[in-house]
């Protein structure tokens, strides 16, 4: 059976990127276990992971962590500085900033994660197809990818949202298409590298259908770069989503979102510094932690890997 080819056979084709096809073949020294050990040794990365966990937990349990409602106005208390009641102060309508940041984090993290999930599915599918079939399929898919990359910076995402109109789903779609090329390229490259590996040839020679070769033999072996890229892309996706919100193209008011909160704070920058400082701090902390975790994963899974 092709699936019983030992994991060590895969290591030859993609050193360090090895993954086990069948967990039963894995001993305690499987590549994933070794990567996990390398990952856990890096204290900064573990700290970043803890920070991310806390941020995610505060987003999930937002209603339990605050007595206020994110939309509840309290106009007499408008633009109150941080204090014992309103820990991080209030905005121009007297809404509690701490509460709005908790709920804003929900939306910001959701936008980022949903975008990455979508660009991952799209990019991995296209990358696998391009790498496996080659020729015309490859050329068509990769030219499409090149075109998205030919737009400078977030201009492509801005253009797409301009056409779709502002909103949560629109931001996710634009962000996902913007992030997709990186996945497609990395997966295609990895597939090309293992395409002529013995175990793929073996599977082909005993007549395994294309779909089975792609899903059972190739996908597990390109998993490592995908995991690394996904974690690094999460930071970027959260940033792009918040950028679009900052420009007023994302979730519409009064929905709180970190980028939108920052845009709000700009209006009152002379009188209410807390509206600018705290949402940005939360966003930076999130992006910094995601970047560190991504770097840690890359170092753990494959010190030689170069993304993009």
């Amino acid at each position: 059976m092709p699936s019983s080819i030992p994991a060590s056979a895969t290591n030859k084709a993609a050193p360090g990127v090895g993954a086990t096809l069948a967990p039963r073949a894995a001993t305690t020294r499987s590549p994933w276990a070794m990567a996990l050990r390398r990952f856990a040794r890096n204290r900064v990365v573990i700290l970043a992971l803890v920070v991310l966990g806390l941020l995610a937990a505060s987003a999930v349990f937002a209603p339990l962590l605050t007595p206020f409602d994110p939309l509840q106005r309290d106009v007499p208390n408008r633009l109150a500085p941080p204090g014992p009641v309103h820990w991080l102060g209030t905005d121009a309508l007297g809404r509690d900033l701490y509460t709005r940041m908790l709920f804003g984090g929900r939306l910001s993290l959701f936008l980022g994660l949903a975008s990455v999930a979508l660009s991952l599915s799209l990019g991995v599918t296209l990358g696998l197809l391009a790498g496996y079939f080659g020729a015309l399929v490859d050329a068509t898919i990769m030219r499409l990818v090149d075109l998205i990359l030919a737009f400078p910076g977030i201009l492509f995402a801005i253009w797409l949202v301009a056409l779709l109109g502002p909103g949560v789903n629109q931001v996710i779609l634009a962000n996902a298409l913007f992030g997709m090329p990186a996945f497609a390229r990395v997966v295609r490259g990895s597939v090309l590298a293992i395409k002529s590996a013995d175990y793929v040839q073996a599977a082909r020679s005993i007549g395994a259908p294309g779909g089975r070769i792609i899903l059972v033999h190739m996908l597990p072996n390109v998993l490592a770069p995908i995991v690394v890229l996904a974690s690094l892309n999460t930071a970027q996706a959260i940033l792009v989503a918040a950028s679009l919100s900052f420009l007023g193209l994302g979730p519409q008011p009064p929905m709180p979102e970190w980028g939108a909160l920052l845009a709000d704070g700009m209006t009152y920058i002379r009188s209410a510094w807390w509206l600018t400082v705290f949402p940005g701090l939360a966003l930076t902390l999130t992006v910094l932690s995601s970047n560190l975790v991504g770097d840690g994963l890359r170092d753990a899974l494959d010190p030689q890997m170069v993304v993009k």
């Binding site: 940033l239 950028s243 600018t276 400082v277 949402p279 940005g280 966003l283 910094l288």
Partner: peptide, 18 residues
Amino acid sequence: VVIGASMPTFWVGPMLIL
């Protein structure tokens, strides 16, 4: 440098203004 790379433009700007 790592912190600088993680700060979004739309926070750096307002912070510098502040």
